[in-house]
């Protein structure tokens, strides 16, 4: 105890370490700016903003022909113009509707198949092999078949999304159910839990994190499928904007379409993250 005290005093006698110039500057700056200012966000935005500025500059001084790549200002102008008539909202909603419909159909199929093959060995033997075989085929390559089967209008678009969505969700749900610790089944037996309790309190919550990962992967594929589907025969939707741009050699329309796809994709991704936050409160500690 005494020993510790003397050491402590010895430390103190060294006195404060002199500040170097950089530290002093930091001190002065921090007097004017609140400590909680989100500097990280500012630093992260610098590179993207610089890239956009460079893009604008390159088209303005003629490094890049605006006919090859429209400047950001023109993309923005097109956006404002199309927004003022409300046209853009109709296209966005059309695309969103197609994705949601495809997700609902594909998601329902995936959940039913995943639960069936996750919960029973027989289900796995019946469902898994054919599904793995179909999965080996590129889902986007089924477009010509879907055109014949479901029609070139809404059918092929929604169908492509639905098919693309099934596999990631199915695989992750199935894996999630099978990955649950066997010792929990023992525990359920010892506690006298009913089959229903085993399902609702052990299996489903245990498989949920994996299923949500599957949903996120599915979302990515859903938008990709939609881009291909709307590219086949665009009647309304964001793909229509892109096709218009292609036909009129207007790159600003194409870029606007791509940006809209990206924003919608990000928004839905954020929605699933929110869902994860709400549904998996017990794992928040690890998600951070």
């Amino acid at each position: 105890m005494v020993f510790a005290q003397t050491e402590f005093q010895h430390d103190k006698s060294d006195g404060p370490v002199p500040l170097d110039a950089k530290d002093r500057l930091t001190q002065i700056v921090s007097r004017f700016i609140p400590r909680t200012f989100p500097w990280s966000i500012v630093r992260r935005s610098v590179t993207p903003l610089l890239l956009i500025a460079l893009w604008q500059y390159a088209t303005a001084v003629g490094w890049v022909d605006p006919a090859v790549l429209a400047p950001p200002s023109q993309v923005w102008a097109t956006f404002v113009e199309l927004s003022s008539t409300g046209e853009i909202l109709v296209h966005v909603l059309t695309s969103l509707q197609r994705v949601l419909l495809g997700l609902a159909i594909g998601g329902t199929v995936a959940v039913m198949l995943g639960v069936a093959s996750g919960l029973s060995k027989l289900g796995e033997e019946a469902i898994d092999p054919p599904l793995q075989m179909i999965r080996a085929m590129p889902s986007l390559g089924t477009a010509p078949l879907l055109v014949i089967w479901l029609g070139i209008d809404e059918g092929v678009k929604v169908g492509l999304v639905a098919i693309g969505v099934v596999f990631p969700l199915y695989i992750n749900l199935y894996k999630g159910i099978r990955g649950i610790d066997r010792r929990f089944a023992e525990l359920a037996q010892m506690c006298g839990a009913s089959r229903r309790e085993l399902l609702t309190r052990v299996i489903l919550p245990g498989a949920l994190p994996s299923a949500l990962v599957g949903l996120r992967l599915s979302l990515g594929i859903a938008w990709l499928s939609l881009v291909i589907g709307e590219g086949i025969n665009a009647q309304g939707g964001i793909g229509y904007l892109v096709a218009q741009g292609r036909n009129a050699l207007q790159t600003d329309w194409i870029i606007l379409g791509l940006v809209l796809y990206a924003i919608l994709g990000l928004l839905m991704e954020a929605l699933v993250r929110l869902l994860e936050w709400r549904l998996l409160p017990w794992s928040r500690g690890f998600l951070k």
Binding site: R183, F184, L187, A188, M190, C191, G192, A193, S194, E197, R201, V202, P205, G206, L208, L280, W282, S283
Partner: peptide, 20 residues
């Protein structure tokens, strides 16, 4: 058991009441 074997997605009291 040696591992407490609590279900991570159930609150403490729900773990205790599990199977009741």
């Amino acid at each position: 058991f040696q591992d407490s074997r609590l279900l991570p997605w159930l609150k403490v009291w729900e773990n205790v009441a599990f199977g009741l």
